[in-house]
Amino acid sequence: MSTKQKILTILRQDGNIVSGEKLAATLDISRTAIWKAVRELEKQGYHIEHFPNGYHYLVSDVLEKELITNEHLPTSAIFIKEETESTMDDAKVAALKQQTSPALFIAEKQTGGHGRFGRAFFSPNGQIYMSLLLEPNQTFEELPQYTILAAVALSLAIDHYTGKQTQIKWVNDIHLEGKKVCGILSEAISNFEAGRIQHVILGCGINFSLDPQSFPTNLQTKAGPIFPQANPSATRNQLIQLIWQYFFELLEDLPNNKYLEIYRSKSMVLGRRVQFSQQGVTYHGKATKITDTGELVVQTKQGDKTLSSGEISLEAIE
């Protein structure tokens, strides 16, 4: 552990003002070395108050492996970058290099992020951009509904830290108070010779804490942050940790379909009229059911239409 990390640990654990003299004696280094290390921590984004009698740690939102880890994701399986083109691409490269999974890839800044159908999306700095690499080694028919599991885990974690109730727009968007705060993208890498899915990658882009007015004008009525205030009630580390804690708990609970019950209860489309396009034809109807395999059943004048996430995008909800 570096000197900076040792000082950070002491300040966090103490919770009060810790004198430079005490830090120096504990770590057997000079007061000057303490001061330099504190300055380096501040440059990294940590908030530390300076007093005549010492230093006091304030809650900071710097991404840290040690605060995200859980029994399924050791620190050695968490990779954090200052900037990347896409965490999905980072996960794909890691899969090709036979990275042990599960593994989590996170970035402070993402320059080439995209959603379903290759759509680019607004990616301001300091939000949450992450992708989870899994190695199910199963046939397509055997695969769990990973996108739905991730949506439920995200929704529950956001509920926990906001005290509000999120909704899920089929199949992969999380909405809070009528605005999209998170999108999920899942991709599979197949082994055609073996007929099995070798890897699955779950990507998440989360609007964590932002001024709602900072969104592009055309998005302000559609998208928003989880925390519009300057001082959110949770850190990104806490939210990320809880998301994947919930995800792996739901995964371990299979084949119990409790996650589907939660998903359906949080649906913002069931029972409502929707519009969608399929093979160049626009349909209108009422969303009546989400199947056990995550498909949406819409009752239209032309009969029931069963929609999969890969072939349509909901265009309107009435």
Rank of each mutant, 00 (worst) to 15 (best):
C204D: 00
T84P: 03
Q229R: 09
E83F: 12
K180G: 06
V38D: 03
V281N: 08
N16G: 05
Q44W: 08
I174V: 14
E64G: 03
S277I: 06
P52Y: 04
G303S: 13
P216Y: 10
Q13P: 01
K65L: 01
Y129S: 05
K286P: 00
A287E: 01
N53D: 13
S267R: 12
L239P: 02
N70Y: 11
K81N: 09
G15R: 14
R236K: 15
K286R: 15
K164S: 05
R39W: 01
Q275H: 12
W35M: 12
G183L: 07
Q213V: 08
S131T: 09
V281Q: 14
F105N: 05
K169I: 00
G45K: 12
V59N: 05
T111Y: 15
Q245P: 08
L242D: 02
V281K: 14
T75C: 15
S155A: 09
K258F: 13
I312F: 10
T69G: 01
F105I: 06
N70F: 10
C182G: 03
T100G: 04
I184T: 05
A157S: 15
T288L: 13
K43T: 10
A120T: 14
D90A: 10
E315A: 07
Q138M: 13
Q99Y: 04
M1E: 03
K97V: 02
E311I: 10
A94F: 05
A151V: 06
L149F: 04
D28M: 14
N137V: 04
V269K: 11
I189F: 01
E261G: 00
T288F: 03
E261T: 14
F247Q: 04
W35P: 02
K266N: 02
S123P: 06
A223I: 05
E177S: 15
I174Y: 10
C204N: 06
M268Q: 10
P74A: 14
W244N: 06
L176I: 10
S308F: 11
V171A: 13
P232L: 09
R236N: 04
T293H: 12
T300C: 13
N218L: 08
P225Y: 06
Q13H: 12
T69L: 13
I201T: 04
Y263F: 15
T139S: 15
I226S: 04
I189A: 00
V171Y: 07
D89M: 10
I290G: 00
G20T: 08
L254G: 05
G310H: 11
E82N: 14
R119S: 09
K301C: 03
G224M: 07
E82D: 13
T235L: 10
P228K: 11
I201P: 04
A223K: 08
V297C: 11
K92N: 03
F122C: 01
V171C: 13
V62S: 02
Q241E: 14
T291A: 06
A287Y: 13
Q165P: 00
Q302K: 15
L239H: 09
K169G: 02
R236Q: 08
T100Y: 03
Y259A: 09
T84V: 15
I148E: 02
I80E: 07
A230E: 12
S214L: 03
W170S: 04
A188K: 00
Q238E: 14
K36P: 03
G224V: 06
E42D: 02
F105W: 08
P212S: 11
D211Y: 08
H284L: 11
A120M: 12
L242Q: 15
Q138E: 07
D292P: 08
S131N: 07
L307Y: 11
I197A: 00
L96P: 03
E261Y: 08
